[in-house]
């Protein structure tokens, strides 16, 4: 066995520090919660509503993100056109917006007094203080995570596979569905996991744009914040539930992604 070099010691220490710092708070949530409290916290008024709203709203947002985002990322990955880099930068902009700014920006664009407010009102669409508004906020903050991952995944697919598909009689649309998506699946799934995680934890934009109405716009993070003011134990318990759900989602997506990683989705 060779001697531990100073550099090795240094990088190992850095990793240990990072690991401790990043996991300690999460561990603390569970350490501070007894199983009984965890179950009891689910009985608090509004808690189950918040959990179910979080799941429904994030799933709805993911559907929108995938249905619109996958073809959009495909265009960015396969076509070259003037202003392509500018478009990529613009769609990734929400990544760097502070969530509160994102909420205010959404209000300015889609709120009652916003740019499209009058037009939305004429169409009978209400977003503020509505579940639909939560979904809009989630899509806005989470979509860029999926878009950039999907674009990278599509770009990495060997383009001769797409050409082979075309010469075998498949249209571009069928090639997209039968070759492009299955080949890029691991990357698409990891983009999906990132977007889902971001949407589940979304707080600021939802609060400012859609409000915090229990059962309508109060997602789990908003419910945790409300409980935090009155009942720290319940807030901790609900946090533990959210961490468990998010962790399980992330893990399952990684597992599915790992299984199909070499691209083994049959059919």
């Amino acid at each position: 066995m060779r001697a531990l070099r100073p550099f090795d010691a240094l990088v190992t220490l850095a990793l240990a520090l990072a690991l401790c710092f990043l996991t300690l708070p999460v561990v603390a949530i569970f350490a501070g919660t007894r199983p009984g409290e965890l179950v009891a916290s689910l009985g608090e008024p509004g808690v189950l509503d918040a959990l179910s709203l979080s799941l429904k709203a994030t799933l709805a947002a993911l559907v929108v993100i995938v249905v619109v985002g996958a073809p959009a990322a495909y265009v960015l990955a396969t076509r070259s056109f003037r202003g392509r880099s500018a478009v990529i930068t613009l769609v990734e902009l929400p990544l760097v917006l502070p969530p509160a700014v994102a909420g205010i920006a959404l209000l300015a664009a889609l709120g009652p007094q916003g740019l499209l407010g009058g037009w939305l009102e004429d169409a009978g669409v209400r977003l503020v203080f509505e579940t639909a508004g939560v979904i809009v906020a989630l899509v806005f903050v989470a979509a860029p995570f999926f878009l950039s991952q999907a674009q990278a995944a599509f770009s990495a697919v060997d383009h001769t596979w797409l050409e082979a598909s075309r010469t075998l009689g498949a249209s571009e649309a069928r090639t997209f569905l039968s070759v492009m998506v299955p080949s890029a699946l691991p990357g698409l799934l990891s983009g999906l996991a990132l977007a889902w995680g971001r949407a589940l934890g979304e707080f600021g934009a939802t609060l400012i744009f859609a409000g915090s109405l229990s059962g309508v716009t109060q997602t789990t993070p908003l419910a945790i914040y409300e409980l935090f003011a009155t009942d720290l134990t319940a807030a901790l318990a609900l946090s533990a539930v959210l961490v468990a759900i998010s962790g399980a989602l992330l893990l399952s997506v990684k597992l599915v992604g790992g299984r199909v990683a070499p691209g083994l989705l049959a059919r």
């Binding site: 596979w161 082979a164 080949s183």
Partner: peptide, 14 residues
Amino acid sequence: HCGYVFQDYALFPH
């Protein structure tokens, strides 16, 4: 309807 054999065969890996 051209039968095309690509240099690295381009078989669909999935």
